[in-house]
Simulated scan of single mutants.
Amino acid sequence: MSERLQIRADDLSGGEVQALLAEHLADMYATSPADSVHALDLEALRAPDITFYSAWDDGTLLGCGALRDLGDGHLEIKSMRAVREHRGRGTGAAMLLHLLAEAARRGAARVSLETGVEDYFAPARRLYARHGFVECPPFADYVPDPHSVFMTRAV
């Protein structure tokens, strides 16, 4: 990963970020049954309980991720995505470390996430496991779903 990598809070107004999120949603619907897709659209990501971040290197968008405040010191990771051309280069790990550091800065006790069971999601599950996430029961408003894996870790 370049030393020039910058991760910053993002207002979701940029065309590159919007295109990445549209690709993310399209891939989620292409790989999971519609009723098992928990990815948020652009408007949902603008909710006041969500902080969205984008990762850039010298003006090039590399990826994104968000934190949703579930209350009681519990945060949820949403919309983790690396730009297709930059996958496997550490963008996901850099974003995840940023989100975990932000969770610690906010005084969170726990960070959780939902991802898919399909092979498409295997690299994401491995990334999360490498950073201390373990499988857990559904949290917040989630319900058991055979197409979802729920993971969590203490901060």
Rank of each mutant, 00 (worst) to 15 (best):
L21Q: 14
W56L: 07
R46E: 10
R46N: 10
E16D: 14
A55D: 09
T51V: 15
I7N: 03
E43T: 11
A26Q: 13
D10H: 10
L62Y: 10
I7W: 05
D35M: 04
T51I: 11
A47Q: 10
L62T: 05
F52T: 12
A26I: 06
E16Y: 00
D58F: 00
T31M: 08
A44H: 07
G63F: 06
L25M: 13
G63H: 07
T51R: 14
A47E: 09
H24F: 09
D10L: 01
L12C: 06
L12Y: 00
A26H: 04
A34G: 07
D49F: 10
S13T: 15
G59T: 08
S36Y: 01
I7P: 04
L42R: 12
P48N: 15
Y29H: 15
L20C: 05
R8Y: 01
M28S: 15
W56K: 10
Y53Q: 04
L25K: 06
S54C: 08
D35A: 08
A9E: 14
D10W: 01
A39V: 03
D41M: 01
Y29S: 04
D11Q: 03
T51P: 07
A19H: 08
P33Q: 00
M28D: 12
A26Y: 01
D11F: 01
L61N: 06
T60N: 09
D11W: 05
Y29A: 12
V37Y: 03
L21F: 10
Y29F: 15
L12R: 04
Q6M: 12
D10R: 01
E43L: 04
S32T: 12
D57E: 13
G63D: 10
S54L: 02
G15P: 15
F52E: 04
P48S: 15
D11S: 09
T60Y: 05
L21R: 06
S32M: 11
L62D: 02
W56H: 11
D41E: 02
Q6G: 01
I7V: 13
D35R: 07
R8E: 14
I50R: 13
A9H: 09
L12F: 03
D57T: 09
G59Q: 06
G59F: 01
Y29G: 02
D10F: 00
D35W: 03
T31H: 13
